[in-house]
């Protein structure tokens, strides 16, 4: 019940409009935190996208994860791209930041044609602003040029 009170306090912008009727009820959503290996079971009380309370976290990262996961779930993406002249044929890459979860497949697909040439260094840019996310894709391993001089 205290949750409802909190709703009105937090959602003052909506309350001001006096259209409380089209607001949803407080619903509790359950998410499993992926912030660390603990995997806390988070309960997120929210009215639509307004998060009122997060419970069940063991650290601040978990609370943040709960809010983020409810409103805009994001995931780090790691994949590999072709590389010429290195000890291995694939170079590992990742997004510099987590991207929206619904774009994970698109990000991986968009990197499929990329070819790098050794040497590359950790942090080298592979693709800027991948899938219009504003997020870059970078190399995660130093790969020397090998082979005959």
């Amino acid at each position: 019940m205290t949750d409802r009170t909190a709703t009105r306090d937090d959602g003052s912008d909506r309350a001001d409009r006096g259209d409380r009727d089209d607001r949803g009820e407080v619903e509790t959503h359950v998410y499993l935190c992926t912030g660390c290996p603990l995997g806390c079971r988070l309960e997120v009380d929210a009215v639509d996208d307004d998060v009122l309370e997060v419970r069940g976290f063991a650290c601040r990262r978990g609370e943040r994860y709960g809010r983020q996961e409810h409103v805009d779930p994001r995931r780090p993406v790691a994949t590999t791209v072709w590389i010429e002249g290195a000890v291995d044929r694939r170079a590992p890459v990742r997004t510099a930041e987590p991207v929206p979860r619904d774009l994970v497949r698109d990000v991986v697909a968009s990197l499929r044609g990329v070819r790098l040439e050794a040497p590359v260094r950790r942090g080298d840019l592979v693709v800027a602003d991948v899938c219009d996310t504003g997020i870059d894709v970078i190399v995660t391993r130093d790969l020397e040029r090998i082979g005959r001089p």
């Binding site: 290996p37 780090p76 790691a78 994949t79 590999t80 590992p92 990742r94 995660t140």
Partner: peptide, 16 residues
């Protein structure tokens, strides 16, 4: 190649 390493060793998550 996935993330999830280093939270204890470096205080941040990095890939293998």
């Amino acid at each position: 190649i996935h993330s999830g390493f280093g939270l204890h060793a470096f205080g941040e998550e990095v890939t293998g």
